[in-house]
Structures are given as structure tokens and as C-alpha cells.
């Protein structure tokens, strides 16, 4: 793998994380992250659709006229979503039921159309696949972060196994819709808080002040 393709891969995972930095693809991030198992299924399905459709778009982009490219991209995505939908229904009917309409809704996940429009339609195949894989992994990482927080706090379990003592009274609300908003909001606030603090820490003249800033920043994360 060439150096640039590796850059394309890594960029999407954290620095340009599709959910946390560009706030795309929010609907599934909030809707299906109430348990870790759902997150894994949704993350894998989205990853597959993202990589497969970006691969195809990068291959055929130069033959698609500009005026109809969005329609063509959406059709390509819809095809792969149908494949993913049928595969999940056949392999894991329970998961299919739990995710409900949200598998079909991968079609309208802005991350996918965004990567195609901004990257895959203008770049070579290898880079496009790397970029799509990076964004897909970034999406999955965020989903898992959300899912872990929500399942542990909301139900005291992780992947169905009890991790908190039985005496723990679960915050059921974290499994319910408001929990999604609150968890993502808190994560975004923490990230912003660290970002705002960073320049202040760097400017601090005394090393002692910088150290204390770093410590309090670290404890919050």
C-alpha cells in the first residue's frame, strides 16, 4: 500500500472522523447504538456498503455525466444496501429485526454519499477504497463508543454479559432515545472542551501550569 493510500485510510478514522468531526451519519449513530451487538452489525453493514460503493464509483466515475452523478451514486448505494439487507436477513434474522428500517436507511447515510462526492469520484480506485475504509472504521469506532457507554450505563451489561454489580440500578433512559442524544452531546462537548483547552495549555509560560492543565484535561477524558 502506498503512503498516500495509507494517509487516506488513517485520516477518516480519527482526524476527520465522519461522525464526531463532520457530524454526518447521525441518524444511525443515535438510533441503533443502544446495545453493542447492534452497533457491530450496523457498523459492519455500513462499512461494506461504503467500501463496495466507493470502489464502484471510483471505477466508473469518469463515464458518469456530471448532471446525473448524484442519482447514479444513490442507485449504486441502494444496490449494495439491498445486498447487505438480504445478507443480514439470511444470516442473522434477530439482528435484522432489531435494526428494523435502519438497514434500508443506510442508503441515505450522508457519510457514503459524502465520501463518493468528495473523494471517490475524483481519485484512483486504491485511494478511494482506503478513504472509504477509513471513514467506515471511523464510523464503527464512534458507534462502538456510543454503544458501550449506553449499554453499560443503561443496562449494566456489555454484549449481553453483566459487567456492573447486580446492585447497580440501570439508567434505563440511556437505552431510550434521549440517551442517544445525551451521550453524543457529551462526547462532542468533551472533544470541543479539549480542543479549546489545548492552545491555552500550549501558551502557558510556566511548565507547572502546563502540566496541571494536561492532568485535568486527561482526567476529564
Amino acid at each position: 500500500m502506498s503512503a498516500t493510500a495509507r494517509d487516506d485510510l488513517i485520516r477518516g478514522v480519527w482526524r476527520e472522523n465522519p461522525v464526531l468531526v463532520t457530524t454526518l451519519g447521525l441518524c444511525p449513530t443515535l438510533a441503533v447504538t443502544n446495545t453493542v451487538a447492534n452497533c457491530v452489525a450496523m457498523g459492519l453493514a455500513t462499512f461494506f456498503v461504503l467500501v463496495a460503493s466507493c470502489y464502484l464509483v471510483a471505477l466508473v466515475a469518469k463515464w458518469i455525466p456530471g448532471e446525473i452523478r448524484i442519482t447514479a451514486f444513490v442507485l449504486i448505494i441502494a444496490t449494495f444496501v439491498t445486498v447487505a439487507d438480504m445478507a443480514i436477513e439470511a444470516l442473522a434474522p434477530d439482528v435484522h429485526k432489531a435494526l428494523g428500517a435502519f438497514i434500508a436507511l443506510i442508503v441515505v447515510n450522508c457519510i457514503i454519499l459524502g465520501r463518493q462526492e468528495a473523494f471517490a469520484s475524483k481519485n484512483p480506485v486504491l485511494n478511494s477504497v482506503a478513504d472509504a475504509a477509513g471513514a467506515g472504521i471511523g464510523f464503527m469506532v464512534t458507534m462502538l463508543m456510543m454503544g458501550t457507554v449506553r449499554e453499560v450505563i443503561g443496562n449494566g451489561t456489555l454484549l449481553g454479559h453483566r459487567v456492573l454489580p447486580a446492585s447497580y440500578e440501570p439508567w434505563v433512559v440511556m437505552m431510550l432515545p434521549p440517551g442517544g442524544f445525551l451521550t453524543l452531546g457529551t462526547i462532542l462537548l468533551l472533544i470541543k472542551w479539549k480542543k479549546v483547552r489545548k492552545p491555552a495549555v500550549a501558551d502557558a509560560p510556566a511548565p507547572a501550569a502546563a502540566a496541571s492543565g494536561a492532568v485535568s484535561g486527561g482526567s476529564a477524558a
Partner: peptide, 22 residues
């Protein structure tokens, strides 16, 4: 506060609204 301006706060507000709608 400066760090809370922006989308994070909007989500917290949305969470409160969502709680109310429950």
C-alpha cells in the same frame, strides 16, 4: 462557555426535548 458553543450543546438540548416527548 466557549467550549459548549456549537453542536454538542444542541445535542444536549435535543436530549432534554426527547426526554420531554417520552
Amino acid at each position: 462557555p466557549e467550549f459548549a458553543r456549537g453542536v454538542g450543546l444542541v445535542f444536549i438540548i435535543a436530549g432534554s426535548l426527547s426526554l420531554a416527548f417520552m
